[in-house]
């Protein structure tokens, strides 16, 4: 028996919104520790990894580890039937064919339940090394979203350069080129969540497809901060912490000169 209850049901809506344009089908693994998901996009250049700890749920029970093969677009359709203030409960048997979703309005006046058919999904599981990155940038997620959106109008590839002073995002295209530099905040600058912080061992410059960075920014509503982890010649990690429960991380392979 698997049962997981989230008082803030809208969180689940936001999570699926953050994944479904990148990944169509995925296995969500449920264990005593919580929910995890690892799925690549169709062209195998990026990967989305979701981690939700059991302690972040209001109620969590998982007697036996199970894997839920989900069509994320269909899950999104069902979650659209939940009100933004609804409590959402997920339920599945030990050898499930379906996932049951129950939505309860805050005053308990409306209770609905839906069953989503599960699928058998074969996936390639990538072993991601637990790497120490040369640069870790923490910045407001809204600012990152804006930069990616703005630069995508000009070109396809974004050059991200991280130095001690700041992070430079550069793009060039047929109409011209552009750069946005965000500088490290000084300690006195306002709110923690509005700050740009850079931890750096050595400067890093990498090229990435803006199209994919744009997919990742669908996770912006999940939190005020995004972290970018970069090392030379390895995929970037774009990590969105989800307050109190876990995180969504996106890995994107760099573009390389031929």
């Amino acid at each position: 028996m698997f049962e997981a209850r989230l008082t803030e049901g809208s969180l689940l809506k936001k999570i699926i919104e953050a994944i479904k344009d990148l990944v169509q089908e995925a296995n969500v693994d449920c264990s005593e520790e919580g929910l995890t998901m690892q799925a690549m996009d169709a062209s195998h250049v990026s990967l989305c990894s979701l981690n939700m700890r059991h302690g972040g749920f209001d109620h969590y029970r998982c007697d036996r580890s199970i894997s839920l093969g989900l069509n994320l677009a269909n899950l999104g359709k069902i979650l659209k039937c939940a009100g933004n203030d609804d409590v959402v409960t997920l339920k599945a048997e030990d050898e499930p064919d379906t996932l049951t979703l129950m939505f309860e309005s805050p005053n308990q006046e409306r209770i609905s339940d839906f069953e989503l058919k599960l699928m058998d999904i074969e996936t390639e599981h990538l072993g991601i090394p637990n790497e120490e990155y040369k640069c870790t940038i923490s910045m407001p997620s809204g600012e990152f979203q804006r930069i990616v959106r703005d630069l995508a109008v000009i070109g396809e590839t974004c050059i991200i350069t991280c130095t001690k002073e700041g992070v430079k995002f550069s793009v060039s295209g047929d109409l011209g080129n552009g750069n946005v530099t965000v500088r490290q905040s000084s300690a006195a600058d306002g709110d923690e969540k509005d700050q740009v912080k850079i931890q750096m061992e050595e400067p890093v410059t990498l090229n990435f497809a803006l199209r994919y960075l744009g997919f990742f920014t669908k996770a912006t509503p999940l939190g005020s901060t995004v972290k970018l982890h970069m090392s030379p010649d390895v995929p970037i990690v774009v990590e969105y912490p989800i307050d109190g429960i876990g995180s969504i991380s996106y890995f994107l392979a760099p573009k390389i000169d031929e």
């Binding site: 195998h44 250049v45 990967l47 599981h125």
Partner: peptide, 13 residues
């Protein structure tokens, strides 16, 4: 510029 694949960096398990 070539878009590299993730599997080139991470081993499959």
């Amino acid at each position: 510029m070539t878009q590299s694949k993730l599997s080139a960096f991470f081993r499959s398990s």
